[in-house]
Design a protein around this nucleic acid. Sequence first.
DNA 1: TAGATTGTTAATCGATTAACAATC
DNA 2: TAGATTGTTAATCGATTAACAATC
Lengths: 210, 210
Amino acid sequence: MSKQISMPVIRRLPRYHRFLTELESQGVERISSNQLATIMRSTASQIRQDLNCFGGFGQQGYGYPVTALKEEIGKILGINQGFKAILLGAGNLGRAVATHMNFQQQGFELSAIFDKSDDVVGTMLRGITIMSDDEIENYVNNNHIDAAFLCLPRNSVKPLIDKLYALGIKNFWNFSHYDIKNDYKDVVVENVHLGDSLMTLCYRINEQKD
Amino acid sequence: MSKQISMPVIRRLPRYHRFLTELESQGVERISSNQLATIMRSTASQIRQDLNCFGGFGQQGYGYPVTALKEEIGKILGINQGFKAILLGAGNLGRAVATHMNFQQQGFELSAIFDKSDDVVGTMLRGITIMSDDEIENYVNNNHIDAAFLCLPRNSVKPLIDKLYALGIKNFWNFSHYDIKNDYKDVVVENVHLGDSLMTLCYRINEQKD
DNA sequence: TAGATTGTTAATCGATTAACAATC
DNA sequence: TAGATTGTTAATCGATTAACAATC
């Protein structure tokens, strides 16, 4: 098995992919680590180090081919597999996530949406009919599901996590503050803490004023 | 002036605040760095180091007083000032941000919402009447505004940023992929890249399968 | 006092940056 | 070939962890 890649490197990969996609759309065919570093406000050294964790994608004296490199990073991220995901919670946040994201570009396919409220069950969202939470078990048993997106209030998460875990779902994109890792260890959780991000902005505004 | 605090430490502060708030609500009055480390899946050493960047909030042989420590971290973050913010873009994402977030807990107060579309201008969101983008200049000139929340598609950002910057707004919570820092250096930008987060989840799912 | 736990210094670890030989 | 730029090793920097004296 290949050596473990460090988290800082992994978290930079999507950013590389974004900038390369942009460059490609501008018709740029090749780019040096130096040029890319300028655009991304990074360093040439870091870019070369990062990429060489996965292989030698460049050519000495020439640079990196934009499209090929973008494709390679896409493969490394594994975004070509269309992981099947279900969305839990069709409140404001869930609706925004469902309508705002382009899941395909990030390697996912939205398979179903569930909510506990009768007010929204049966209505459509992104071309998908929202189902009741009661139907989760049946649905997951009859459809291969890779991940769950959790757009629920904190207090609703625990019982649903238990159910999903029992059904074999172990990958979560979690917008709540509920700490899934404390319940289950063999789980992949990517947390989005919007409140933390906003608090950080608050700190940095204060810091700036000094 | 106090010494510069490193980004890793700053980004952990909101998390400390969250866990302390939770502990407080459970009636816990004091906690040791060891206990807190267990709950947060961190280390006692790191917690003590982090807190001592700002002062000695604990008591030897006793631990940290939960409420007082929470208050201190709140002060450090500066969340008691109610920074005035405007929200740009009342699409799916903007609506979710407006309705889902509790801005006060993160140090902000939502002052106004703007959108370019006549379809939504004049309608209410979170008790605020959405205004037209044309009214931004007038509004910002007549109200003290500290920050702007950008819930816009990438291509709409640049012209609005120019306008806001000219009006003196230099703090941004940015959900788009537009890179504000490349245009203006003396600006505080906190980016939320949901797509990057989801791509990272994708990578980690693949990694897990090995 | 004795036990516990902080505040703080020292040691380790890992990530970033710099340098340069390899090579296109 | 000469110039450019990578791949990769070495050096530096910073963050985390460990250790322990201070002290409640």
